[in-house]
C-alpha cells in the first residue's frame, strides 16, 4: 500500500538530488576538459586534445612560484591553525570559565563574517603593521580563517573522549601536560589531522583576503589565476584550476578518511 505512493515520491527525491549535484558540480568540472584543449582560447566544448597548457603551467615561472607560494602559505597556516585551534578546542570544551560561550562564538566568527569585511579589516591593520604583502601576514590572516575548522573538528573529537580517561591518567601520576600528550592527543588525533587538512585547503584556495594581502612580488596561485583571467584568457588557467581542484579533492578525501578513524573505544 505504502510503496505505491512512496515509489514515485522517492524517485522525485533522487531526481531532485541529482539535479542539485549537477548544478553544483558542473561549473566546477567544466574546467577539466577545457584544460586539455588544443586551441589557444578558453572554449567549451574544447577543441582537440593537448597537454601543452600543463607544460606551460609547469615551465612558466609565474605559475610555478605561485604554486610554491601557495603550498608554503597553506602548510604554515595548517601547522599554526592546528596548534592554536587544538588548544582553543581544549579550552572551550574542557575549561570552565566565565565567557566561555562568548569566546567560542568569537573563535567561530570567521565562518560567519563576510570574507570581504575580514579582508578589508586585515588589510588596513596589516598595512600599518607592515605585514601586508609578506608571507607572515598572509599566514596569520589565513590562520584566523582556518582556525574555526580545526576547532570544530577537534572539539567534536574531544567530546567523544571520556573525561574519566583523563582523570584516570592523573590519578595514575600523569600531570596535565603528560595526560594530554599520552592520552588525550592520541585519542583526538583523527580530529586534529582532519582539522589540519581542512585548514590547509582553506588557505590553499583562499582568494579574497589573499588579493588584499599579496603583492606583485608575492602571489599565491589563486591570486595569480585571478590576475591572469583579468588580463589574458589563456587555457593555462584551466590547467591550473584543474590542478588546484585535484589537490583540494585529494586532501578533502584524505580528511574524510582520517576523520573516520574514530579512536578505538
Amino acid at each position: 500500500m505504502t510503496d505505491s505512493w512512496r515509489q514515485p515520491h522517492r524517485l522525485l527525491l533522487v531526481a531532485l538530488g541529482a539535479l542539485t549535484v549537477f548544478f553544483l558540480l558542473a561549473p566546477t568540472l567544466v574546467v577539466v576538459p577545457m584544460s586539455f584543449t588544443a586551441s589557444n582560447s578558453l572554449t567549451f566544448p574544447p577543441e582537440g586534445f593537448s597537454t601543452r597548457w600543463y607544460e606551460k603551467m609547469v615551465t612558466d615561472p609565474q605559475w610555478s612560484t605561485g604554486f610554491v607560494n601557495s603550498a608554503k602559505v597553506a602548510f604554515l597556516t595548517a601547522v599554526l591553525a592546528t596548534a592554536l585551534g587544538t588548544l582553543a578546542a581544549l579550552g572551550t570544551v574542557r575549561g570552565r570559565f566565565p565567557g566561555r560561550n562568548g569566546l567560542q562564538l568569537l573563535i567561530l566568527s570567521p565562518l560567519i563574517v563576510p570574507v570581504i569585511i575580514i579582508a578589508i579589516g586585515m588589510f588596513s591593520v596589516f598595512v600599518r603593521w607592515k605585514l601586508a604583502g609578506s608571507i607572515a601576514g598572509l599566514v596569520l590572516a589565513h590562520t584566523a580563517l582556518a582556525m574555526p575548522f580545526v576547532v570544530v573538528n577537534v572539539a567534536t573529537s574531544l567530546r567523544t573522549v571520556d573525561r574519566n580517561l583523563e582523570l584516570a591518567a592523573q590519578s595514575l601520576g600523569a600531570g596535565p601536560v603528560r595526560t594530554f600528550r599520552r592520552i588525550t592527543l592520541p585519542l583526538i588525533l583523527p580530529g586534529v589531522m582532519a582539522g589540519g587538512l581542512f585548514a590547509f585547503i582553506t588557505s590553499w584556495d583562499e582568494v579574497v583576503v589573499s588579493i588584499f594581502l599579496t603583492s606583485a612580488r608575492f602571489r599565491t596561485l589563486p591570486v595569480e589565476m585571478w590576475e591572469q583571467v583579468r588580463q589574458v584568457v589563456d587555457p593555462t588557467v584551466a590547467a591550473v584550476a584543474t590542478t588546484l581542484l585535484a589537490v583540494t579533492t585529494t586532501i578533502l578525501l584524505l580528511a574524510l578518511v582520517v576523520r573516520r578513524q574514530a579512536p578505538a573505544r
Partner: peptide, 16 residues
C-alpha cells in the same frame, strides 16, 4: 597526580 592514589572507575576508564 601527586596524591599517589589509585582510582578505579565504574566504566573502567582503560586507555583504549
Amino acid at each position: 597526580h601527586r596524591r599517589d592514589v589509585g582510582m578505579i572507575f565504574q566504566n573502567y576508564a582503560l586507555f583504549p
